[in-house]
Design a protein around this nucleic acid. Structure first.
Lengths: 202, 202
DNA sequence: TAGATTGTTAATCGATTAACAATC
DNA sequence: TAGATTGTTAATCGATTAACAATC
């Protein structure tokens, strides 16, 4: 099992490998890939080893094969359908980012309880009442949700998502929700991170 | 010197302490604050120790004094003026998040090179050509910037920001920019983090 | 072979957890 | 005093770095 940091770096490598393919570069050394992604060459080698891809000392790594290998590692990522819960400032911001962008990740629906926000299209995404979430999750086999509700509803909404079968949550609220061990939660508290930068900018 | 993780957690504690103040709760134990912020009681104690605040075994920590102490730790954070560089999808998303929200953090200006985007107001924030950045940074003593330009411009723009005196960068691009040691960079690659969640949701 | 890069193991580093004496 | 919480030290854990033999 790869560590969280390795998974994160593999996602980075993949992006740069795609660029290398477009530049018709067919092989790459660990230190080259490392330089692109800001990681030491040894770290790159260890990460690639952990997904079972092996290079060779004379040519390094074959870009296309390695890319396929990482794609395989992430498997269903490409066709992933995710939902957004909470259409506030941050929710709308994410919608415009993911619907307007050329990202491979699709937010298939957004949910809220506010009547003025539901049953219409917001930033290119259909918005529904949170009661309809269950149907969507079942029908589209959604496993991942973006949580962007007000802080006070974070815990209860997260618990609801778990009951409906969600396995991974990207949590944009400041609350560290407590859930079963088998649910993966990635905390993305933008304000907190920004305060960190402000602290170190002094 | 506190570790990065301690700084991050202090930012969290502060938010919950503000809530406690509004609830007129005047003292708090480490395990209570820990439960709110999803941190062990021992960790909370160690973090608070590291900012020099000391509680007592019978009443725990005084909420107001502790809050003042953490505010002091973050010092100039409150009145912080920051700028945004790059008014693409993510840039606009951040603008709407920070200008519409009741955040204490102000994005005082946004910069781009695209003529269709500059010299007008976007999501409540004035947008200027990147050439005018120097004046703004000097005049408003800006030390922190949000970097949200296309990946290929990430490194060069980051270097420009350093030359103009920026000390901390919140980096929303997928590129790990290489800068002088004394510049703090916080990487916030949303797509990468989302792919991580997708991976663990399988 | 010589040179550079690879996979792999040992050493280092830092942060978290566990344990406990000191304190109100 | 008894009980709970505090500050503090030692043990644990995991990831990174350094070192090196194996390989093309």
């Amino acid at each position: 099992m790869s560590s969280q940091k390795t998974v994160a770096r593999l996602s980075l490598y993949r992006r740069f490998l795609k660029i290398l393919v477009s530049e018709e570069k067919y092989s790459v050394f660990s230190h080259e890939l490392g330089k692109l992604s800001g990681v030491t060459a040894a770290q790159v080698r260890r990460d690639l080893m952990s997904v079972g891809y092996t290079g060779n000392p004379s040519h390094g790594y074959k870009v296309i094969d390695l890319l396929n290998c990482i794609d395989e590692f992430f498997k269903s990522t490409e066709s992933a359908n995710i939902i957004l819960v909470g259409i506030g400032n941050i929710g709308r911001a994410l919608l415009s980012y993911f619907t307007q962008g050329k990202s491979s990740i699709n937010i298939i629906a957004a949910f809220d309880t506010d009547k003025t926000k539901i049953n219409r299209v917001i930033n290119g995404c259909h918005a529904y009442h949170i009661n309809e979430m269950s149907n969507f999750i079942n029908e589209y086999k959604v496993k991942t949700a973006v949580l962007a509700v007000p802080a006070i509803y974070a815990q209860s909404t997260a618990e609801l998502l778990c009951e409906l079968g969600i396995k991974g949550i990207m949590n944009f609220t400041p609350v560290r929700v407590k859930l079963n061990e088998d649910i993966y939660v990635e905390d993305m508290d933008i304000t907190m991170h920004l305060e960190k930068v402000l602290y170190y900018s002094k």
